[in-house]
Write a protein that binds this DNA or RNA. Structure first.
Lengths: 204, 204
DNA sequence: CATTTTTTGTAACAATTGGTACATAAATTA
DNA sequence: TAATTTATGTACCAATTGTTACAAAAAATG
């Protein structure tokens, strides 16, 4: 609400920055960091190289910005779902949303945070490590939620919040691979359903 | 037992072909297809380019040969484990072996078939598709084993062999991501243990 | 209108990509 | 020993990688 009304100084940018970043995000999402070339980027964004560099920095910086957009956009459901009232509902919500999201026909299959640099060239090792941290942080989010659930008496006393979080994170990561390999939403939902049988009994 | 005793015609190869292929396999395994360059290959194999090309063909052919070695070597435990007497033992064996294998300190973390080209450049799309098929085929192996188990009365009548196979495959794929991200064998074993609580009751 | 500021487009950059020609070397066979 | 066969090493190839110089263009400011 402030950026729009400002009066930019020089020659106006001919492309929409957010739209361009969105396209970059989807490319990285689909092809990974190593698999995406600047040439391909400038082609699908429809802008020329110097403009891209001026707007977003080099390839690595562009990736970080795309990743930030991804983390605050498509994948925000993770923190949303921790607001569910019970641990079980959190788990259910997480897996169901994951199944839907990972197979969404509007976007590349699978999860960018999981796939964009699982294995990578030497010079992409920084990116690889950043993605590892991202994965760790959403697993932590779940772990903390389950620790709270345990305190609330919402989980059995012998339940291990970290284990439960890792269980869900692992399923999500596996589902991401499945989605990329062609699994359908229905298949992933059925999978989620089966996995939830491992979930500890709720306390009433 | 025959190849050794033959009398090769021209100048003898100075390197061991199997050793070289093993090294290539581990590189592709660690860095993926796009992430591994010919330059890196010739450096770690310790042989020069023309020799590499003469022995294994181009990058894609080399990858296929490395993949074949991987599938018949490190990962042969999958078909081994289907020989277990009950469906549950198959599932247990699969997950436990996976946990051990994926975190084996002797080799790159994670599974080559899962990670080597999950997302990939356009010109690696063939490779990506081959790996998808490989993943599908070990999932099928499990599914067939569980179909047999059901016929044998070893699984409840309402159990779905394909679902169970997909459940295990998904866990394996997720565990591969976890291993790559730094998860330990113990963590993965604990995970396997938790996941098995979703397994249908055995019929006695 | 002149100045300043920013973006655009062309055109190039060095470095790296995957891949090969070719002469030399080392072995077997005749 | 001569001919044949295969492997090696150097040195190169065109194409692509990520990145940048630079002049022209388009806007706001003074």
């Amino acid at each position: 609400m402030s950026t729009e009304l400002k009066k930019p100084r020089g020659r106006p940018r001919v492309f929409d920055k957010e739209e361009a970043l969105e396209k970059a995000m989807k490319l990285f999402w689909a092809r990974g960091y190593d698999g995406t070339s600047m040439a391909e980027l400038i082609e699908t964004l429809g802008i020329n190289k110097p403009s891209l560099y001026a707007a977003f920095g080099n390839k690595e910086e562009l990736f970080h910005k795309a990743l930030l957009k991804y983390a605050s956009g498509p994948v925000a459901f993770v923190s949303e779902v921790t607001k569910e009232p019970t641990a079980r509902k959190v788990a259910e919500g997480f897996l169901v949303k994951a199944a839907e999201f990972l197979t969404n026909p509007q976007s590349p299959k699978g999860c960018m945070i999981v796939q964009a640099a699982l294995s990578a060239s030497e010079n992409a090792e920084m990116i690889r490590n950043v993605l590892i941290k991202y994965r760790g942080s959403y697993e932590n989010l779940l772990a903390e939620r389950f620790a709270k659930a345990k305190k609330d008496g919402d989980l059995p006393t012998d339940a291990n919040p970290k284990d439960l979080a890792k269980f869900l994170a692992t399923l999500h990561q596996g589902m991401s691979v499945q989605a990329t390999s062609g699994a359908t939403k229905q298949e992933l939902l059925q999978l989620a359903n089966l996995a939830l049988k491992a979930w500890p009994e709720e306390i009433k």
